[in-house]
Amino acid sequence: MQRHSLRLALALPAVATLALTACTAVNERGDGPGGGSGLAGTISGAGASSQEAAQAAWQAGFVESNPDVTVNYDPIGSGGGREQFVNGGSDFGGTDAYLDEQELAGAKERCGEVVELPVYVSPVALVFNLEGVDTLNLSPETIAKVFNQDITTWNDPEIAADNPDAQLPDTPITPVNRSDESGTTENFLEYLSAAAPEAWPHEVSGDWPVAGGEAAQGTSGVVQAVRNGNGTIGYADASQAGELSTVSVGVGDEFVDYSPDAAAKVLEVSERIEGRGEYSYAYDVARDTTESGTYPIVLVSYALACTNYDDSGKAELVRSYFEYMLSAEGQDTAAENAGSAPLSYTLRKDLEPAVAAIGSGSGS
């Protein structure tokens, strides 16, 4: 990931909290020069803080053609975003974990069929701050033991085995985790459970299961806590890692740095979960892969919408906004400004019928 992109991503969240004017994707569809769609109104979304920089970039790109439309996004976290969406408190949602069975049932009651699409794929970086050490290799088992507090100092023999050339101090390790329910946490725990099951005995959820360490609110809180400490290590969406040092993760016989390309490769070897509805594209991510060049700690963040809205005008606005997010331009904009991995052309084509179904009344 390029450092200039990371710095821009850190600047964008301040924009995301503003109500931004938006346009539709009519230019891409060829509906007329200048995007003169005649759309007007406001739509509001809420959810994953990991999407904050990408949402700001999408809104900024969307603003150029239609000054009579406003799009808001509140990065309250995945859990809050899913709750608001299911309860009808937002027009669209953002979440780093697909809806569970209870949430899916509630969303279908509200929506008819639920549109659940991966719009943002990003590495989850293991960020650390350790005086005198700029790079680290860690195997999955070592990562699990560090965050389970079974390994408590940086010169532990297991860490030294992964880093034979490093001068590791005897500094205590301070793991930093999210204090709020978080899709980033859930994705990280899924990785630990799949890649190091013997070293990680906890159930997967959006809540951190290990007492002690240090807890911080939101992605930005984790990054700040790691930056302000010494001997700290945490997990955060890579778009907000900034200048912090990051871990290269053991995959098969190699250690892999995070990057958009390495993150995208995971989705290529993952399978769609069936039985959730025609327009749900939730994926069983292959987090225990040994595929060379693959970074397995990834966050697949979804956007949620309805096939049935009470207000047809809002339905059209949501559909148009989703078209832009999933367009080649939208994916490239997110990659440039938030460090995400652009979805492939094939996957974007597969998702087109689901986008077209937004506001169609299907399942109502």
Results as ranks from 00 to 15, higher is better:
P140I: 00
P140W: 12
G212R: 08
H202Q: 11
S239W: 07
E203P: 05
A216Q: 04
E181P: 12
G229Q: 07
A144G: 14
Y191A: 08
S205G: 15
A225G: 09
T174M: 12
S193C: 04
F255A: 08
E214T: 14
D150E: 15
G221M: 06
G250F: 12
P157W: 00
I151S: 10
V210D: 07
S205K: 02
E198A: 15
E186K: 00
G250T: 07
V251I: 13
T153L: 04
S220V: 00
A160Q: 12
A196P: 15
P157N: 12
R178I: 05
Y191V: 05
Q167M: 10
A160C: 10
E141Q: 13
D134F: 02
P140L: 10
A215I: 06
A241S: 15
G221D: 06
I173Y: 14
P169H: 00
D170M: 02
Y191K: 04
V210Q: 05
A144E: 10
A225T: 13
G229I: 01
V247T: 06
L168K: 09
W154M: 03
N163W: 03
D134C: 01
S182W: 07
S179F: 06
N228V: 01
S139H: 10
A199K: 08
T232F: 03
E254R: 13
Q167Y: 07
S220L: 14
W154F: 02
A160S: 14
G229K: 01
S220E: 09
T219W: 00
E203A: 15
A160P: 11
V176L: 05
G206R: 12
E190M: 11
A238K: 03
P157R: 05
L192S: 11
G218T: 02
T184K: 01
P197A: 08
D180F: 01
A144P: 12
A196L: 09
S193P: 10
S139L: 11
I151E: 14
S179D: 04
T185Q: 08
D237K: 02
V133R: 15
S248W: 08
T174G: 09
D170L: 08
V210P: 12
S220Q: 14
D165M: 13
I233N: 09
I159R: 06
F147I: 06
D237P: 05
P201M: 08
G206M: 14
I151C: 13
N137E: 09
P197T: 10
T185W: 14
G183E: 05
P140C: 09
N155C: 04
V222W: 00
G229Y: 11
A160L: 09
G252M: 05
Y235P: 13
P201Y: 09
S239L: 13
V249I: 15
T142F: 11
T232R: 02
R178Q: 13
V222C: 01
N228L: 05
H202S: 14
G218A: 12
A238P: 08
N230A: 02
Q240L: 15
E181S: 14
V210C: 09
H202D: 13
V223M: 13
N187P: 11
N228F: 04
Q240G: 14
Y191I: 09
I173F: 02
L168H: 10
W154P: 04
G252N: 12
N137F: 06
T174Q: 13
A160M: 09
G183L: 02
G231S: 02
E243I: 04
Q240S: 15
L189N: 04
N155T: 07
G218P: 11
A144Y: 07
A216I: 06
